[in-house]
Amino acid sequence: MNEHLRALLLAVVVVNTVLALTTFAIWFERKFAGRMQSRLGPTRVGPFGLLQPVADAFKLMQKESIRPRQADRVLFELAPLLGATCALGAAAVVPLAPGVAPAQLDLGLLFVLAIGAVTVLPIFIAGWSSNNKFALLGGMRAIAQSISYEVPLLLAALVPIVLTGSMDLSEIVRQQAEGRWLAVWPFFLGLPAFAIFLLAMLAESNRIPFDIPEAESELVAGVTTEYTGMKFALFYLAEYAHTLIASALAAALFLGGWDGPIAPGLHWLLLKTFVLFGFIYWVRWSLLRFRSDQLLSICWRWLVPAGVALVAGAGAWVAWGPTP
């Protein structure tokens, strides 16, 4: 019983920390975007506007809940819940410190990829059940994008698996802590794989420049068009949480996760996560949205063959390269 209690406590702490960090991340993004556009961003609520996302959350909680008459009742209500669960669930296997992860799965990386692939389903459920043309188109686009970028994501994730011989994220990080980070050595495999992973991750979490499922200038708000109040907030939250957790995963796979001098592991993990997160927002506020056809051709004509070549390179490296 005791060990279940421990797992429960850790889960509660991690889930709530992710939520709190997500709130902070929303503030961070708005401030960052503001500065990039010579604005101040939020300044009124709390010091430096830090409490703005909290105020927004309370505001959204008070909003009236409207469900379109035409919508599919059950699925419409269920989609935000499933979306948030899938996004938060991915945090279960992120190694936080040596030997500490909410769930020490041997196949942690496989679990992450699986739940990442499932994340598109709540989005499509939302789009379909809204019975709104904008929402449905958003959902269709989300699926096209997600199934395409799933492949480069998998191929990029195969590189650390081949190099470390493990799918346990804790073990992957431990090997990097003892040796060198995969983005450092072998850098000719690690760095491109890291880049592909980041790109595919941007696409999987529907971030600009891969945000055609949302595309507010053409699709109103994509799948969330008909959602109000807390249900909309859950989608919003899920999107940010997904980006945040994916950044933590990229840090664990290629940048040594909790590995770093002096400070305890968690600090390093958070630092790396927020650096990657900042990069994602840098991209978001600098680039334009890709068109659907560009999106698919980037993936299938460039990223997939590059990913296969990298996996082959990694295979050759462990077969003939120097033994560690």
Binding site: H4, A7, L8, L10, A11, V12, V14, V15, N16, L19, P80, L81, A84, T85, L88, G89, A91, A92, V93, P102, A103, Q104, L105, F111, L234
Partner: peptide
């Protein structure tokens, strides 16, 4: 642990 974690995530949402 994984099941517990997923349950907590769902319960929080």
């Amino acid at each position: 642990s994984l099941l517990i974690f997923l349950a907590v995530a769902q319960a929080t949402a």
